[in-house]
Design a protein around this nucleic acid. Structure first.
Lengths: 293, 293
DNA sequence: TGGGGTCATAAGCTGCGCTTGTGCCCCTGA
DNA sequence: TCAGGGGCACAAGCGCAGCTTATGACCCCA
C-alpha cells in the first residue's frame, strides 16, 4: 500500500514554497523533508520540484502528481478524522449521533474542517438510525444529532445543514439509461430494486414518497455493495445523490429521472428544544451549514 | 499521516472473510495480519472484526470504518496507478498521451482497472494539451491519445470514451446560486471569471461556445486552486462536471444553469487512422468505454 | 563581505512491523 | 471419540526505513 506521507509533505512544500517551512508544519527537520522528496523523485525517476536558492516550485510533472495526491491525502484525512471520532477512551467535548448517510459521507469532511478551525475540539461519533439519533439527543446521550428528513420530534430544535435527493440509478447498459422522459412512481413501485436492509432511513423515505415497493431483487448491508450490484447490472437502485455523485460523474452509474415524485430530502441537525446551541456544537453546525450557503 | 496499510488489510479481511486468506492476498503471514488489525483496534479502542473459529466478519463499527477506508484506499490506489505510469525508466507496453482533464480525473481509475484486469500491461503517461496529444500520436511518440472535444485531425481515428459538461459554478453565498432561470451567454461573456491560464482546452472550448470572454478576474494554474477561489467568493468559474462533481454533491460549490449554450463535450480516444486498435491500447479504450455504456 | 535564506549529504540511532514457532479453540468427519 | 484442519493470538528476534544532528555548498541582499 502506498505511503501517503511523502505526498503529504509534497503538498505542503508546494503550498508553502519551501522545504524548510513544510518541515516546520510537519514537525520534522528540513533534512527529513528533503530526503522524503528525493526518495519520491527517485522512485518516479522524475523531478517533481524545481529547487532554487529562493525556494521551491512544482514542475509540470509535480503539479500533476500533486493534483492526484491531494485527492488521496484528503480522503485519508477524512478517514482519520472519522476514526478519531469513534475512538472510545477519549473525553470528548462534543458527542454527536448521526444517521448512516451523514456519518458515511458528510461528517468526516466536517470533522476535518472542525479540526483545522478548532483543533482543541474533540468529537465522539456514534452512528445510529434516525429514530435512535433523536432518542439519544433527547436522553442526553448525545449533544447533537444529524438525521435525514423532517425533524422527528417536537422536543427537538432543528436546522437544515445539507440537502440531498434520492436518485434512481442503473448500469450504463440498462434499458432505462437512455430514457430521457423518466420513470413514474407506478413503474418504480413495480420494479424490484437493489435495496438496503429494512430499517434504513433511505428506504423508509422512498416508501413514504412512492408507496409500497416490490420485493427487492437483492438486499445488501452496505451502500458500496449496492452500487457494485447496480453497476454489475443486477437491478436498479435508489440512493442518495451524495452517495452516487462520483459514479455519475465518471459514468459508472447513470441517473434516471423519476417523474411526479418529490425525492428531495433535507439533512438536519437536531438538539434539545429551547437550549440554544453553544460551544463546539454551534461551531460544527455552523461549519456544516456554511458549506452550502 | 495515516498509514493506509492496516485499512487495506481490513478491507481484504472483510471481503474474504478470513485473516488467513487476506494475508495470502497481501503476501504476508497470518500473524502479520492479525497484529495489524489488533493494533488498529487498539488505537481505536473498538473492535472492528467479530472473530469466530469459522472466520471473521465486520462489526457495525467495522462496517462504518470500512466504508470510510474504501474511499481512501481507492484514492491511494488511483494515485499509485497514476504515479506508476509516469515512472520514466520503465519499458512501457503502452504509451499514452492525455490532455489535463482526462489525465487528472479519469485516467488514474482506468489505470487501476487496467492493472487488475491485465496486470502485465505497463503504461507510460504523458500529460499534454490537446493539440500536442494529437501531434504525439501522429508522430508515433504515443500509441494512444485522449483529448477533449471533437477529434482534431483527419489522420486520426477516434472513439468517444466519456462525456462531460462545462459547468458554471459559484460559491453557495453568491447571488447567482439561487438563480433558477440561469444565466445567458451574453451575461456570462460580460462577467470576469476565475480561469486557467491561456492554452487550456477547457478555456478554449468555452470561448468557442459563448464567444470572447471578459478579462478573467483571476488566472490560476491548477483546477484545485480555481475551485478554492470560487468557493472563497472571488468570482464564478466554468469547469468540467468531472472536476466539480464532488463539490456540487457536498454543497461547497453550486451549479448555475447556462441557457442557450451547448456546453456538452466529448472526451475521445484517438489513434492513427487505418491502424485498428490492438493489444493494450484496445484493452484500455474498451475498459474506458465500458465504464459508461 | 557577512548574514540569512535556500537545499543536500553523511553518520548514527531508534522503533516498527515483519517472520518463525507455538498454542489454543472449534468444527468436522472417519 | 479422537485426529486433523482451519481459524486466530502470542512471544521472541531481526532487519530496515526514516528520523535527527551536524555540516557543507550555494545564492542573494544589505
Amino acid at each position: 500500500m502506498v505511503d501517503l506521507g511523502p505526498y503529504d509533505v509534497l503538498l505542503s512544500v508546494a503550498e508553502l514554497g519551501s522545504m524548510g517551512r513544510a518541515a516546520e508544519r510537519h514537525g520534522v527537520t528540513q533534512a527529513a523533508v528533503s530526503a522524503r522528496i528525493r526518495s519520491l523523485e527517485g522512485a518516479l525517476g522524475v523531478t517533481l520540484l524545481e529547487r532554487s536558492p529562493r525556494g521551491t516550485r512544482l514542475t509540470p510533472h509535480g503539479a500533476l502528481v500533486a493534483d492526484w495526491a491531494r485527492v488521496a491525502v484528503d480522503a485519508a484525512e477524512a478517514l482519520d478524522a472519522g476514526v478519531t471520532s469513534i475512538r472510545s477512551e477519549q473525553a470528548a467535548r462534543l458527542r454527536v449521533a448521526a444517521s448512516l448517510t451523514v456519518a458515511e459521507y458528510l461528517l468526516p469532511r466536517w470533522l476535518v474542517a472542525l479540526r483545522t478551525e478548532h483543533p482543541e475540539t474533540s468529537v465522539s461519533l456514534s452512528s445510529r438510525n434516525s429514530t435512535d439519533v433523536a432518542a439519544d439527543v433527547l436522553a442526553g446521550a448525545a449533544d447533537l444529532g444529524f438525521v435525514e428528513g423532517p425533524a422527528v420530534s417536537d422536543d427537538l430544535d432543528a436546522q437544515v445543514v445539507a440537502r440531498d435527493r434520492l436518485t434512481l440509478v442503473v448500469a450504463p447498459g440498462h434499458a432505462w439509461a437512455s430514457r430521457r422522459r423518466g420513470i413514474d412512481a407506478e413503474r418504480l413501485r413495480a420494479t424490484p430494486l437493489v435495496a438496503r436492509e429494512h430499517g434504513s432511513g433511505t428506504r423508509a423515505f422512498l416508501e413514504h414518497a412512492v408507496g409500497a415497493l416490490a420485493r427487492p431483487a437483492l438486499e445488501l448491508a452496505s451502500t458500496t455493495a449496492i452500487k457494485g450490484a447496480v453497476a454489475a447490472g443486477v437491478a436498479p437502485a435508489v440512493l442518495s445523490s451524495l452517495v452516487v455523485a462520483g459514479e455519475l460523474a465518471v459514468g459508472t452509474l447513470v441517473a434516471v429521472p423519476v417523474v411526479g415524485v418529490d425525492l428531495d430530502r433535507r439533512l438536519v441537525a437536531v438538539w434539545p428544544r429551547g437550549r440554544p446551541l453553544a460551544g463546539p456544537a454551534a461551531e460544527l453546525v455552523g461549519l456544516a451549514t456554511r458549506r452550502r450557503e
